[in-house]
Design a protein around this nucleic acid. Structure first.
Length: 543
RNA sequence: CGGGGAGUCGCACAGUCCGGUAGUGCACGAGCUUUGGGUGCUCGUCGUCGCGGGUUCAAAUCCCGCCUCCCCGACCA
């Protein structure tokens, strides 16, 4: 793989000119024709130098994969924010589609609430304010005025202070609570099952692209129920939706579990989450589902009249998943050559690369390529015929490889003669080519997509399972936390107190990721204090 | 916000100590050449050296202030 290739060679041969999708005919004169194009900036983003390997520097590797995959770049003009580029956003859109379909299938409806929340709303739920106060960006003024002082450049000045400042939503429980109280009167209005796709802002100390940015995109589900049991059922249903999505669509194995008091959502009775292991062995929380109890119902006066005519507060839930999932996707599957995408989320699933030596060969090969392309389209695959003349085949391979395209197909004169094409899987060594008949290529590649999807999941699961270890003493705990320079998940007994959790964190940087829902109770003794414990929890260093 | 590192063309970097016309490789443009894993050659284009002040005949370089990014903490989806 690339890691073995001398850096100099990579450096001096780098080159990706532009990205064209579809056939020349389809493209016409539209996209990027005749003007300095987006394609140019793509080429620039992806130019030269090798990707850092995972073992060299995982954090650097992560950023390289994002840059070379043309997913996003830091918004250097806005602190802690990122620009999600088309290829990165296309992945997010696929995530959205898959999740949204599952939300609708479980009876939820989409709605949209204001970005700005009256500051007073935040104050209504005590634990909630405490959790989010420091992260809030606050809007205090409106209007700008141009000011021209003598001898100085014109500048802008802020005009009118607001009577009540607004907070830019860090999450929408409060404002949605407010509207729920207007919308709900009777048990007949329940359950109320709402989802919102939105951006939120949390003024984080330290940011990393996709994993933690000041502004991020997410979905937040908010539901209200007549009973606590019903709300809890919802909490687990949606946790299940996340887990199923993560495993079957992202091919990312997850552990479902409950958060400890320390890690619980501010204002919730209990929080559940799915936790995934990244390739450096660290944990990533990939989706959360909260039992809000009646906390927000009471804070926002969300009441209903039950069947027997009594007034009760509703039981609420909220659950969310964010663009962080894209970060998880990257760190679960990608390799030292760049991005690796599971077929279910790959904006481009197949890239066809024609091989030819002269115009006569070119027209034959491109024609065959276009037939293959159409077969793939008919089979429901998203496919590109890369017939760019300005790039040689090798350069095209590198480009699609770095962008994570699951399958690359080569069609050359030899293939046309034998009626086959050469297929390379992104999840396998590029030298391991297979030959596939051109007739029925759509069907065979569709089949292959399923195999790749499964294989990615199995590989990630094998890695995770191998690094999910049971420890019973604190010495073993500290030893097992890092093996071969990578983290592990430790199944250990814990005495259930925040104090012990804190001490372990101080001593090892490991936190309790969750109390797993799967598995059975197993009495034992806390690794730190030796006090009795009913169940093992998962400790790990986390993102 | 504390500790460390860094900001020079699209990317990666040299130049900064010791002030004197802003460089290299890749990318980008043109041409020829080449095409089953980053073709080769020739000629060319692109910079208010992160921002704002100051010192100086002269500032990428020295001084002051600020901003941003990366890493390690604390905080977190």
């Amino acid at each position: 793989m690339h890691a073995d290739r001398p850096r100099e060679i990579l450096n001096c041969h780098a080159g990706i000119a532009q990205v064209l999708v579809g056939t020349p005919r389809e493209r016409g004169g539209g996209f990027g024709a005749g003007r300095p194009s987006y394609a140019t900036s793509v080429a620039r983003a992806m130019s030269n130098d090798a990707i850092t390997t995972r073992s060299q520097d995982f954090a650097k590797w992560y950023q390289d994969v994002i840059r070379r995959g043309d997913l996003a770049e830091p918004a250097e003009v806005v602190r802690g924010c990122m620009v999600i580029k088309p290829h990165g956003y296309a992945i997010w859109e696929k995530i959205q589609q898959e999740l949204d379909r599952r939300f609708k299938a479980t009876g939820h409806k989409n709605a949209y609430f204001p970005l700005l929340i009256p500051m007073s709303f935040l104050a209504k739920e005590a634990a909630h304010v405490e959790g989010f106060a420091m992260e809030c960006a606050v809007v205090t003024h409106t209007g700008l005025r141009a000011v021209q002082r003598e001898g100085e450049k014109a500048s802008l000045e802020i005009k009118n202070p607001l009577e009540e400042p607004y907070v830019i939503r860090p999450t929408s429980e409060t404002i949605i609570g407010h509207y729920f109280s207007k919308w709900i009167q009777s048990h007949r209005d329940l359950p109320l099952l709402i989802n919102q796709w939105a951006n939120v802002m949390r003024w984080e100390m330290r940011t990393r692209m996709f994993l933690r940015t000041s502004e991020f995109l997410w979905q937040e589900g908010h539901t209200a129920h007549a009973t606590h049991d019903e709300a809890l059922e919802e909490v687990h249903r949606m946790l299940g939706v996340y887990a199923d999505f993560a495993e079957s669509v992202m091919a990312m194995p997850v552990i479902r579990g409950q958060k400890t008091e320390t890690e619980r959502f501010a204002g919730a009775l209990s929080t559940f989450a799915i936790e995934a292991m990244m390739q450096d062995g660290k944990a990533l929380q990939a989706g959360t589902s909260h039992d809000l109890g009646q906390n927000f119902g009471k804070a926002f006066d969300v009441k209903f009249q039950n069947r027997s005519g009594d007034i009760e507060y509703v039981w609420q839930t909220s659950w969310g998943a964010s663009t962080r999932l894209v970060g998880g996707l990257i760190m679960t599957h990608s390799d030292d050559a760049g991005l690796v995408l599971p077929p279910a989320l790959a904006p481009i699933q197949v890239a066809i690369i024609p091989i030819f030596r002269n115009d006569a060969e070119r027209s034959k090969v491109v024609e065959a390529g276009d037939r293959a392309r159409r077969e793939c389209v008919d089979a429901g695959l998203s496919v590109v015929l890369d017939d760019r003349d300005e790039l040689r085949p090798g350069a095209k391979h590198f480009e699609w490889e770095q962008k994570g395209v699951p399958v690359r197909v080569e069609i050359g004169p030899r293939d046309i003669e034998s009626g086959t094409c050469v297929v390379k899987r992104r999840d396998k060594d590029p030298k391991a080519k297979t030959s596939v008949p051109l007739a029925g290529v759509g069907a065979s590649l569709t089949l292959l997509m399923g195999q790749i999807q499964t294989s990615l999941f199995e590989r990630a699961k094998a890695f995770r399972d191998q690094r999910l270890v049971r420890v019973d003493t604190y010495d073993d705990f500290k030893q097992a936390l890092e093996v071969d320079g990578k983290g592990q998940f430790l199944l250990a007994h814990w005495d259930g107190t925040p104090e012990t959790e804190q001490k372990i964190k101080e001593g090892t940087k490991a936190t309790i990721r969750c109390i797993p829902l799967e598995g059975e109770d197993e009495p034992g003794r806390c690794v730190l204090t030796g006090r009795p414990s009913q169940r093992r929890v998962i400790f790990a260093q986390a993102y």
